[in-house]
Design a binder for these strands. Structure first.
Lengths: 242, 242
DNA sequence: CAGAAAGGTTGCGTCAGCGCAAACCCGGCA
DNA sequence: TGCCGGGTTTGCGCTGACGCAACCTTTCTG
């Protein structure tokens, strides 16, 4: 991890609770979950800090407890794509431990965050010793796979406008906080992020988002995007421009 | 499965060997592999037969022993995308057993095929009882995930031409049979298949493939595509149109 | 508080690729 | 042998969205 700017802790009261709520330990008795938590390391990072880099040897598995993480892939031609945003309660960097052993993307905090992580050895041991954990992992990865496949199909068949809307709806699903009919996406998003998520350009994303803000469909409040009318968004997602 | 046109067998000598070579049982002692094989059902299907359909409740996990299978997803708007072609030795329809429980796509044979399959109960039991199998599954799914993510990035950033080339190279990787410098893709591919794989239209795919055939980069031999110069293809994949 | 840096907006010209429509090829079958 | 049907090719017009360039706004930082 560190460039020295990280503050490291062993799990405290709060973080233990957060770790025990992870999908990883779903269906497990509390004492096992506690054991999993006891093996974790917790890093407190500022925004914009790198967690791991594409191509590095996979040493640890991670989970976001507080904050948000950007997972970005860079092609051999230099083109970038935002694979996903990680919200609190989600894991990342786990698959590489089980496959070729190299992280397939960059990971950096999108805001000040608390990141839990486990060493490869510990994580593999947990998996070997608990079939339930193994199955939980398969479930998580399978979920991701289904999600990415959907995006792939959309990318192939839908317009830039529709893809952006889908990206927004996905983010709402993932970390939406309802408040007075509207719904705030609790992840800091720059235009560039939206564009890369939806597989379009900064310019197109900016144009569309600005237009939607003008109409009152969206709003910005302190770095975050607020969806004011999800249903109207959904209509755009399906019907296209009608 | 069946519309009555399938011929069902219990594993024979040959099929047992094929099943024991699956990634699923990698690193397992032979007797365990044999046990896995003994639980399998084998269907002999003609080309164009449906194996399962999108949205159906996931009952079984599958593997192709002989032949090829098309995995196609259809969006709510009716747009189709070819998620992957399955070559002999690969599994499909497994993830749904661990997630929501519905197949996320259609599966149909692209040619006469032998398909092995396991019931959900058997498959889950195997996973619960053997950590190694669980880890193998995670590895397989992880591999797929990495692959799909790459395609997603390419889809977002590259030209139709480059995406088609990548699709071809992937297929070569997956089921290429070398013969006299050239390399045959042992999966029947229609223009439409290539188009949907690469996320472009039938028309664009046809134009490009025809052009490459004219130049001698590609050829067709009895339903199959033959890559005559993989290196030149790779150059197109990277450099674009130069 | 000034100045820099990072992010956001927008006008405008351009073109890759879409998709209709019409023709073509070819293997199977009566 | 001739017809039928699925797959393929290709001409042509159209447009979504790309991307440069220039400018504006907000957020750091010393």
């Amino acid at each position: 991890m560190g460039h020295g700017m990280s503050e490291q802790k062993t799990p405290s009261q709060n973080t233990v609770r957060a770790i025990c709520a992870l999908g990883l330990v779903k269906g497990l008795p509390p004492e096992v979950a506690a054991h999993v938590a006891s093996l974790a390391r917790v890093d407190v990072l500022p925004g914009g800090a790198g967690v791991f880099t594409q191509g590095a040897v996979a040493q640890r598995a991670y989970a976001v407890l507080v904050g948000a993480v950007r997972i970005r892939q860079i092609g051999s031609d230099g083109a970038q794509a935002l694979m996903r945003m990680i919200a609190p309660g989600e894991m990342f960097g786990t698959v590489a431990l089980f496959t070729e052993g190299y992280y397939p993307a960059d990971a950096e905090t999108a805001m000040p965050s608390h990141i839990a992580s486990w060493s490869k050895a510990d994580f593999m041991a947990l998996t070997m010793n608990s079939p339930q954990i193994a199955i939980n992992i398969i479930g998580m990865v399978g979920q991701r796979l289904a999600n990415v496949q959907n995006r792939l199909r959309e990318m192939a068949t839908q317009s830039a406008e529709q893809r952006i809307v889908h990206a927004l709806l996905m983010l709402v699903e993932q970390s939406g906080a309802v408040q007075a009919g509207a719904c705030e996406i609790c992840i800091p998003l720059r235009r560039r992020d939206v564009a890369e998520l939806a597989g379009t350009t900064l310019y197109t994303a900016s144009r569309l988002l600005a237009a939607w803000e003008k109409v009152g469909l969206l709003a910005r409040s302190r770095q975050m995007l607020v969806v004011r009318d999800a249903n109207k968004l959904r209509r755009i997602a399906q019907g296209g421009l009608l």
